[in-house]
Amino acid sequence: MKKISHRFLRLNLIRILSQSVFVGVIATTSLVSSVWLINSNAYAQNPPTVSSNEIISYAKTMLTMEPLRQQAFDEIKKMIGSKEVPQIVCNDKNSFNSLPNKAKDIAVNYCQRYQKVVEDNGMTIERFNRITLEVQNSEDLKRQIYNTLLRLQKNPES
């Protein structure tokens, strides 16, 4: 009986953690990419479909960057103390202004790393941002990315 309860608890924890990571990653991705979108070209009313390879690249980027985002946020939070961490938008230099110099360096480093990880996963920033927008408007795409995140967490080699 304990073995069944343990498995059930473990599966619930995995599901809850996966959902938390997914929500956090989508929120972070939205913040990071919001200004990048301003600089990207407009696209047609019906955006192009997202291929399975793009879904995998997008999910891999999100999984790579989420722990780095948390680390950067924690480091900045420690530096600014009890004040709330301001919204940091990578392509908006003004969003860095209220940060102390060392915290500003952490934010800049994070943004540079984010762009590199996107590119290392075979995407352009513009395409990554378009997918981010589409995820916000498409339950089907959101589900596909969520399932890909789960699969990659279970088997990172796939």
Rank of each mutant, 00 (worst) to 15 (best):
L150A: 07
Q136V: 09
M1N: 11
T29E: 12
S30A: 10
N147Y: 05
R127E: 13
P86K: 01
N97E: 09
R113V: 02
N41V: 05
E139L: 10
V135I: 15
I88A: 02
V32C: 02
L13M: 14
T28W: 04
Q136E: 13
L37P: 07
E119F: 00
E75Y: 02
V118N: 07
E126V: 07
R151E: 15
R130C: 05
Q19C: 07
Q115E: 15
P100I: 01
K116T: 05
L141Q: 08
L37W: 03
L149A: 13
K3Y: 06
Q71D: 15
R7C: 07
K78I: 03
E119C: 04
Y58V: 08
G81N: 01
N155A: 10
Y114L: 05
E134K: 15
K3P: 04
G81P: 00
E157V: 14
V135L: 15
I26S: 13
D92E: 05
F73V: 01
L63D: 11
L133Q: 15
E54V: 00
N137W: 01
S52Q: 15
K142W: 08
L31P: 03
N97Q: 11
N101G: 07
K77Q: 11
A27M: 11
N129P: 07
S5T: 12
S5F: 14
T64E: 15
Q115A: 12
V108T: 12
F73R: 06
K83Q: 12
L9Y: 09
K77M: 00
N94C: 01
I131A: 01
E119Y: 02
N137L: 03
S5P: 00
D92T: 00
D105E: 13
I16D: 08
I125D: 08
K93E: 10
E139W: 04
I16H: 11
Q136P: 05
L17W: 07
N94F: 01
S98T: 14
L99D: 06
V89R: 09
G122A: 05
L31N: 13
L11P: 05
T49Q: 06
L31T: 13
Q115R: 10
C111G: 07
N155H: 13
L68Y: 02
Q45G: 09
W36F: 13
T132A: 14
V135Q: 12
F8R: 08
F22N: 12
A42E: 10
N129Q: 06
F128S: 08
N53G: 12
S51V: 01
Q70H: 07
V108N: 12
S18Y: 05
A42K: 12
A42G: 05
S138E: 10
Q136F: 14
K116D: 03
Q153W: 01
N12W: 10
L68T: 06
